[in-house]
Every structure is written in structure tokens, then in C-alpha cells.
Design a protein around this nucleic acid. Structure first.
Length: 924
RNA sequence: GCCGAAGUGGCGGAACAGGCAGACGCGCACGACUCAAAAUCGUGUACCCUCCGGGUAUGUGGGUUCGAUUCCCACCUUCGGCACCA
């Protein structure tokens, strides 16, 4: 080694210097250039919480590396940044520190801008957008007006989730967990009834379910699909005895004949009219009780069904059966129509309800597997019952003095014969193929119509005048575990006990019944969604004011476009009182009606911040533009977003909203294209060293600023790419980053320390092979977002290059090529050290505007391969052979192996398998 | 309960057409340099056995195949989402 001293790798010195130069040179400014293909790389915009978290680095620096890679591949890359600056945390933090939310927010933004610059990311800061700037929220308001004018925004009184701590309404998506707590502060939510603004997301439910134009992770697509929750079925019209229509939604119209009662949500509008005088008191009490309960109580672990009978009846439209109408809190006013037909034989919840309140259970769907079930109680059996069943080959088991029988349909007749002989008369019953058979007096009585239910009960009484028997029978019927199993199932089998539809096979039952309902005008095909319209009203200060005016004469009037933005006043009491702070401002809400000029009042609620973040990728295109939300020429060139990166936690919120927003804007003629973001990739989460989620209270927070000071941004970037699969994340390791630091120091030394000597041809050939093989792997991994293997491949190549240098490769053209390619591959990962080394080698500024190298396939080709020789699938030998060896030659060489001969013991192989360039498997 | 993902050394992870399991890094052990330590460099490091050479290993049990971490079936565990959704 040379004695000439080289400077040590000092990231603190070189990183600041290059960042300043890149900034001054506008190296990362991206402008419209139709002569080059564009690539819009977007990373989710941060909330200005005050400090850049390691999670921000984990999300952004690999995204930056990929954007840089795309740039070197010849794309004109846009990689913008901004701040999602409105929202609750600003107010919460402001309350704590008694500082105005605006001051708090902009102070944080200033701080985070500085921190973001230390990443060395290729952000185009000219395009920065801040959602709380009036120039930004002016257009958030404009979009609101557009949605309103196109009938996609509407106002209604509705019960909403309310956080008593934050004193605000929450979107459904902001209520988390089993105990239904506030996403922000963790407080359990309650309900409140308010006039609220909604966007009609449900109008796009079906289109949102289509993912054929986008390359998004399966995981996100599944989450969105479940969130939207499309159910297909039928709407069916029941009629009350008062003559009102109750519409229900069901996914199982084929079970309509089994509807033995109805249940309405306690809040259902028809409850009052249905309730009989006798029941009025209990019904009202139940409703009061339901309302008093918070959601936590209502959905607590105790799943015991509650409910009360209204005293009213309705008619089942398919068979005219008069069925009782109940109310129960397991029926939700917020899903479907708030009313259900209850089919206890084929719906678990209805079954539980029927068991508890003794309501009839009528199976109307046969078991598709054809198995029948029976049950005989102790005391009813004459000796020999069990042996007789076994002799007949009928599967049965004895348990708790009872006999359970599960038999195939074809054994039914045999079973009945045996039962007649061996069971005491009048003491048993069974279910065969979902048909109730009562065997009394050695005769069979089939329950084939609902009316026979009453006949059975009266017959029971006849037979057992002391009523005890009837009681026992009922317990067996409703309360016994086996009978549950026999009675209740949710499969799709042939219809039974369903008049003309009896016998209809399970696979066609639903469409046939639906068709018939439509022709009879008793119902229609219907689709229901779990997704609800997007509630955007917030009774908070720090948000974009909803640009609406209420006039006594003209009603709702949107603020005219030329009057936008509706400015958020600074002199407001922003501490939460439960009222919208803007309502308490002395003058702000008073205005004049844009239509009639009379006195009017402004809407005092502000918008959900997800509204602001639904279109920020559009504002990035031209934050300077004043004639619209974005400059058309910029849109036409850059949109749609090619690569969107961010956290999975936005799968059912932001990522649904922004797709809805884009589609709505398309239909309003504001923009073109069906999808805003073509490709989505999610990163995982960085955990603390204790494998727990990082939190201040746990004291396991890793602060990126400290790391950057200690090791440099390049090392932090590289370690974040290396330490885990990017989409998975994992625990931080302070030992792990040391390994990456060592690697960068070795790169530094390898490039700068002079080497000497003359390497032989095979060293040179080997060096070039490794370089180009690595290039191939790194290129692929960048395309696939597999950052961890990029770093390991570069480490591996460094090891190889160090060896080659020892062997005297330095100074050759192959060495120069290797270093050149190495630095280019390193540039996206570690932009500072690669730029510095590039400059020290006297290469033209900047490495980041260089092109990505091309793989030299000839150089990457293997000359010699290790042929693996297996005997019966086990590796027994390895032979070095030429890479272009023929199949015949390979097999011959393998069979000639001494080891193989040993295992063959002189026998001829039964089969010899050859996998080109890899192995020979000798099957003995 | 329903939907989804994942289980590989002491640890993070690799294996990208079904074809050498454990790349790369951390940690650990030994060695070199040093008065010494740190740093750096080198060597080794899945487990078991008699250490020549074998055997066993990718959550568990089956299956397909000449050959399975990879494909199929069942189960177990962990994580994430939804949850009385009719």
C-alpha cells in the first residue's frame, strides 16, 4: 500500500458542501420537457409535527434513491415535497403550549424543511406546496364548490362519531380499534347529531373496486375491497299490518320462506307506528337504553342479544305469513335499510336471537352434503338400538346418555326402520334432510308447512298432559347443541318448504327468486355497500373553511369562485369548546348572500384534512399558478403519478379518497384519466431496538438528526435500505448501522488508495464479470423496490474488487470501468460520497446527471460453471465444467464421477436428469 | 368469527422460472498490528455424530416430483385489517 496519506471519509464535511452546491446549481429542478419521457415519483407528504422522524427517512430516502435511479435511466423525474399542514395535532399541540396553531405549524415546517434537506434528497423545492397557505386552500375550497355544483357534496343531519376529548366529529376511518377510540388521542368516541357535509364517495363504489388500470399491492386492493364491502342480493318489500312498507336488504333471497320474524333498528322511523299500546312502554325504554349506551358498551365483548317485541306484525310477501316485528340493537340503522327479515335457520345472529326469545326456526334450505342428523335421548332407547345402527353401517356415537347419528341420505329409510323398532313411541324426533320428522305412535309426521308448528306443539300436549314433556321437547329443539347443528346452517343447498321454489338447486336459487320478486313487484335485485359517504365537516379551527353561505331567502349558496379563498381569520379562540370556533368569532360568520344581497351567514365548519391531501399531487405541478388548481400544460406532461410511495396505514383513507377525488374531477371535466397514481408501493415500519413501536414514553425513539451527525446521511440512507425488506420494516439496530459505515469507509479507501501491479487475464475477466453481474442484479432490484439486496450486492462487489486490487487490478482499464460503474450504482443510495469520489477522480460534475450503465452481457457471462452432481436428489459431487457444456457431455462427466460410481455400486442408473448450466441428477 | 400477509442460524435477512439452503451484514471466536486498548485487516461460525466422512435441517403433518424454502391439502403460531354489514 502507498504511504501517501489520503483524507479520511468525513461525511459531515462533504455532505453539507455538496448539498449547498446542488441547491445553488438547481440540480434537482425538473421542468416540462416533451423531448424526454417523464417520471412522476411521489412520496406521501408529511404532516409538520415538528420533528422529522426516522419513519420519514425510511419512507422517503429509498423513494428518493429510486427516483434518482429513474433519472439516471434517462427519465425526466419529478420528485416534489410539501406539507399537509392543517389538522388537529396543530390545535392539540397549540393548546398544550399556548401558541397559535398557525405559528406552531409554520415554525415546524421551517424546522422540517431544514431536516429534510439533510437527507440529500432530490426534492424540487420550487414546487413545494403547503396545504394551509391561502393560495393552496383557495383551491381546496374551489374543489368543494365544484363537487357541490355537480351534486357530489350535500348536507344532512346525521349522527356522527364524536370525540369528547378533541371536541370534534370523526370520519368513520378515524375511529379505531375494538373499543372504537379516536385515531388521534385514543379517547373512546360517542355519538352526536349534527348538520354535516358529505361527499358522495358511494357514487363511485363500483368503479373504486376496479383495479385493472393500476399496479397496486394486492394487500391494499384487498383492504380497499373489504372496506367498500360490496354485497349483492335483493331488496324485498314487507308490509306492516298498518299498511306501511318496510324495505329490507338481504343477500339470501333464497331463504325468504324461512323469515319467521323481522327486526328493526331501534332508530328506525316506523318503530313508533308499529308499536302496540301494550308494548309501548318497554319499547320506549329499550330505545332510551340503546341511545344512552356508548358504542363501546353496545359492541362490548358480551354478545348476548337484546331486543323487544313491538307488538306489531308484518306480512312476508312471498307466503303471506304473519310475522312479529321486533327491535334490537344488532340491527344497525347505518347499514342497508335499518331493517332485516330474520331467517333464524340460516343466519347465525337471527338464530341466536330466536333461541333467546323462543321465536320459530324454520329451515328452508337443504344441506348440500345430503347428510342427515338425528338425536335420541336416554330413556327412549330399547336395548339393541346402538348395535343395530352400527350393523346397518350408520355412523353414530354415544354421548351423555344420548345417541348422535350423522348419516348419508341414502341410509334414511333404513334408519327410520331401526328407530321405529328400538325407540319408545312418542319419545323421539329427528331432523332428516332439514325436514322435521316427528315419530309418534310409530308413525311419521312431517313438518312440511309453517302451520304444522302449532299442530306439533298441540300434539305434544296431547301426548303429555303434564306439559313437562312438551317443555323437554322444546329445550331439545331450541337449546340443545346438537339441534343447533342440525337446524342451523348457512350453506347453499336446494330450497325446501318454499312453495313453487322447493327443489330449486342452490346454485340457481338466488337469481331465480330475485327474478320472480321483480316480476311480482315484491322486490328487486339490489347491491349494498359497507362504504359510506365521506363526512368532511369538522367543528375545528385549523382547517380550510367550507365555502358555503346560508341565506334565509336563497338557502344554501356556494361562495362565488371570485370570492375565494374564504380566509381563515387569525383572531379566533381556537381552543375547543364543542362549538365550531369560527362560530364564536364576533364578525366572521356574518356576510351577505351572493344571490340576493341580503344578510346571510357563513358555514363555520372547516374541512377534513383528507380533502387537502386528496389533490396535493396536483398542486405540486404548479404551486405558483393562480388561474386554477394546476397549470394544464404541467398536468398534461406529468400526470398521472407513476410511482407513489408511502405507508400502508392510508390504504382505506387517503388512498380511497384520492381515487374518488380524481374520478369525480374527471367527471366534472377538470382533468383527464381514470386513476391518479399508476403504481403504489408501501414501506413497512421501523421499530425501536426493542422491537416495539417507537414512542417517547417507551424511550426507544431513534432520532435521525443524531444519526446524521454521528454517521452522515449516506450511512443512514444506506442502512435504512439495507436492514430489512423495505415493504416489511423491522427493528432498528445500532450495531447494524456500524456495518454500513464500515462499508462506506472501505469504498472510500478502495477508490482513493492507489494500487499497483499487473493483474493476470483471469483476474481482469473475473472482475468485469462480477461488475456486470452486479449491475444486472442492482438494476433489477431498483426496478422491483428491493433495496436491501442492492446494498448487499454492492458490498459483495466491493469485497471482490478489494481482492482484485490485491491481485494488481488497479490501474487497468477494467479497474477504471469497475470504479466508474460502482460509483454510478452507489449514487442513488449514497448521493454525497459518490459525488465526492466522482469529483476526486476528476470525472465531470455531476454524477447524478450521468446515465445508468448498460450491462455488458458478454462480460457478465460465466465461462466456467460448477456442475452440481446429485444422486437421488442429494448433492454428492461438484464438477467444474465449461459453461457451454452439452447435455451429453455433462451427463457423461457426472456418471464418470468416482462418488457417483460409489453410490451406483455397479448398477446402471434408472434415469439421468440434466438441468442446463446447473446440475445432473442421477436416479439410482 | 371473517379477510389478508408472514414463519429460514444467536439476530436482520438472501436464495427472482421447482435445481448447491443460509448470500450480504450484525454478533461471536481465534489470529495479525499495538506496551495496551480502540480502530483496521485476516480466518472461522446452522445443528448432530466417531470431525476422515456421514446424517439432520427453511413452523407442524401429509401430498405432487428424479428433486420442494419455492407448488397442492390440512393444521399451529405471529402480525395487520374488518367485525352483530343482514
Amino acid at each position: 500500500m502507498s504511504h501517501k496519506a489520503i483524507a479520511n471519509y468525513n461525511p459531515a464535511e462533504i455532505e453539507g458542501r455538496w448539498q449547498a452546491k446542488w441547491e445553488a446549481d438547481g440540480l434537482y429542478c425538473s421542468d416540462v420537457d416533451p423531448s424526454r419521457p417523464k417520471h412522476y415519483a411521489l412520496t406521501m407528504l408529511p404532516y409538520p409535527s415538528g420533528d422529522l422522524h426516522i419513519g420519514h427517512w425510511y419512507a422517503m430516502t429509498p423513494s428518493d434513491a429510486r427516483a434518482r435511479f429513474m433519472r439516471m435511466r434517462g427519465y425526466n423525474v419529478l420528485f416534489p415535497i410539501g406539507f399537509d399542514a392543517f389538522g388537529l395535532p396543530a390545535e392539540n399541540a397549540a393548546i398544550q403550549h399556548n401558541i397559535h396553531p398557525k405559528v406552531w405549524t409554520y415554525r415546524n415546517i421551517e424546522r422540517m424543511r431544514k431536516q429534510l434537506r439533510t437527507m440529500g434528497a432530490m426534492f424540487d423545492w420550487r414546487r413545494e406546496a403547503v396545504s394551509s397557505d391561502p393560495e393552496y386552500y383557495r383551491w381546496s375550497q374551489w374543489f368543494f364548490s365544484m363537487l357541490y355544483k355537480h351534486g357530489l357534496a350535500y348536507r344532512k343531519m346525521s349522527p356522527v362519531d364524536w370525540c369528547p376529548n378533541c371536541n370534534t366529529t370523526l370520519a368513520r376511518e378515524q375511529v379505531w380499534g375494538e373499543d372504537r377510540h379516536c385515531e388521534r388521542c385514543g379517547t373512546p368516541v360517542t355519538k352526536k347529531n349534527l348538520e354535516q357535509w358529505f361527499f358522495k364517495t358511494t357514487a363511485y363504489a363500483d368503479e373504486l373496486l376496479k383495479y385493472d388500470q393500476i399496479d397496486w399491492p394486492e394487500r391494499v386492493r384487498v383492504l380497499q375491497t373489504n372496506w367498500i364491502g360490496r354485497s349483492e342480493g335483493a331488496a324485498v318489500y314487507f308490509t306492516t299490518e298498518q299498511g306501511d312498507t318496510i324495505e329490507v336488504f338481504t343477500t339470501r333471497p333464497d331463504t325468504l320462506w324461512g323469515a319467521t320474524f323481522m327486526v328493526l333498528a331501534p332508530e328506525h322511523p316506523l318503530v313508533a307506528r308499529l308499536t302496540s299500546t301494550e308494548q309501548r312502554e318497554v319499547v320506549e325504554e329499550y330505545i332510551q337504553q340503546t341511545l344512552r349506551q356508548s358504542d363501546i358498551q353496545r359492541e362490548s365483548a358480551e354478545k348476548e342479544k337484546t331486543g323487544v317485541f313491538t307488538g306489531g306484525f308484518a306480512l312476508n310477501p312471498v307466503n303471506g305469513r304473519r310475522i312479529p316485528v321486533w327491535i334490537a340493537d344488532y340491527v344497525l340503522m347505518t347499514y342497508g335499510t335499518g331493517a332485516i327479515m330474520a331467517v333464524p335457520a340460516h343466519d347465525e345472529r337471527d338464530f341466536a336471537f330466536a333461541l333467546k326469545f323462543g321465536l320459530p326456526i324454520l329451515p328452508v334450505i337443504d344441506r348440500p352434503d345430503g347428510l342427515t342428523k338425528s338425536y335420541a335421548v336416554a330413556g327412549s332407547m330399547r336395548p339393541g338400538f346402538l348395535p343395530a345402527l352400527k350393523a346397518a353401517g350408520i355412523p353414530c356415537e354415544e354421548q351423555d346418555g344420548a345417541v348422535k347419528v350423522t348419516m348419508p341420505a341414502e341410509k334414511t329409510q333404513a334408519y327410520i326402520e331401526i328407530a321405529k323398532e328400538h325407540l319408545n313411541e312418542g319419545y323421539w324426533n329427528e331432523i332428516v334432510g332439514s325436514q322435521w320428522l316427528f315419530l309418534f305412535d310409530n308413525g311419521i309426521w312431517e313438518w312440511e308447512s309453517p302451520e304444522s308448528e302449532a299442530r306439533i306443539l298441540s300434539r305434544c300436549k296431547e301426548m303429555a298432559p303434564n306439559v313437562a314433556f312438551a317443555r323437554t321437547l322444546m329445550e331439545m329443539l331450541w337449546g340443545n347443541e346438537f339441534y343447533r347443528d342440525a337446524l342451523f346452517h348457512t350453506e347453499y343447498g336446494a330450497m325446501i318448504h318454499s312453495d313453487r321454489f322447493s327443489g330449486t338447486p342452490g346454485d340457481t336459487a338466488k337469481p331465480q327468486v330475485t327474478q320472480w320478486l321483480e316480476t311480482e313487484r315484491k322486490g328487486k335485485h339490489a347491491v349494498n355497500y359497507r362504504l359510506r359517504d365521506w363526512l368532511i365537516s369538522r367543528q375545528r379551527y385549523w382547517g380550510a373553511p367550507i365555502p358555503m353561505i346560508y341565506c334565509a331567502e336563497c338557502g344554501e349558496v356556494p361562495v362565488p369562485d371570485e370570492d375565494l379563498p374564504v380566509l381563515l381569520p387569525d383572531d379566533v379562540e381556537w381552543k375547543p369548546t364543542g362549538e365550531s370556533p369560527l362560530k364564536l368569532h364576533p364578525t366572521w360568520r356574518h356576510t351577505t348572500c351572493p344571490q340576493c344581497g341580503g344578510p346571510a351567514e357563513r358555514e363555520t365548519d372547516t374541512m377534513d384534512t383528507f380533502m387537502c391531501s386528496s389533490w396535493y399531487h396536483l398542486r405540486y405541478l404548479s404551486p405558483w399558478y393562480r388561474q386554477g388548481p394546476f397549470e394544464p400544460a404541467e398536468f398534461d406532461y406529468w400526470m398521472p403519478v407513476d410511482t407513489y410511495t408511502g405507508g400502508i396505514e392510508h390504504a382505506t383513507m387517503h388512498l380511497i379518497y384520492t381515487r374518488f377525488f380524481h374520478k369525480a374531477c374527471r367527471d366534472m371535466g377538470i382533468l383527464t384519466g381514470d386513476e391518479p397514481m399508476l403504481q403504489l408501493r408501501n414501506q413497512g415500519m421501523v421499530l425501536g431496538e426493542d422491537s416495539e413501536k417507537m414512542s417517547k414514553s417507551r424511550g426507544n425513539v431513534v432520532a435521525p438528526d443524531n444519526l446524521v451527525n454521528a454517521f452522515g446521511a449516506d450511512a443512514v440512507r444506506a442502512y435504512l435500505m439495507f436492514f430489512a425488506r423495505w415493504d416489511q420494516g423491522g427493528p432498528w439496530s445500532s450495531g447494524g448501522i456500524e456495518g454500513v459505515i464500515r462499508w462506506l469507509r472501505r469504498v472510500w479507501a478502495m477508490v482513493l488508495e492507489p494500487g499497483r501491479g499487473q493483474a493476470d487475464a483471469s483476474t481482469i475477466r473475473g472482475l468485469r464479470r462480477k461488475v456486470h453481474q452486479t449491475l444486472r442484479a442492482v438494476t433489477r432490484d431498483f426496478n422491483e423496490f428491493e433495496f436491501n439486496t442492492i446494498v448487499s450486492a454492492l458490498m459483495e462487489l466491493l469485497n471482490e474488487m478489494s481482492k482484485a486490487k490485491q491481485l494488481g487490478a488497479a490501474g487497468t482499464s477494467a479497474w477504471d470501468e469497475a470504479v466508474d460503474v460502482y460509483l454510478r450504482m452507489l449514487a442513488p443510495v449514497a448521493p454525497h460520497i459518490s459525488e465526492e469520489l466522482w469529483a476526486q477522480l476528476g470525472k465531470p460534475y455531476s454524477i447524478h446527471t450521468q446515465s445508468w450503465p448498460e450491462v455488458d452481457e458478454e462480460a457478465a457471462r460465466e465461462d466456467e460453471i460448477t456442475l452440481v452432481v446429485q444422486v437421488n436428489g442429494k448433492v454428492r459431487d461438484r464438477i467444474a465444467v465449461s459453461a457451454d457444456i452439452s447435455e451429453e457431455e455433462a451427463k457423461t462427466r457426472a456418471l464418470a464421477s468416482e462418488v457417483v460410481q460409489k453410490y451406483l455400486e455397479g448398477r446402471a442408473p434408472r434415469q439421468v436428469i440434466y438441468v442446463r448450466g446447473r446440475l445432473v441428477n442421477v436416479v439410482a
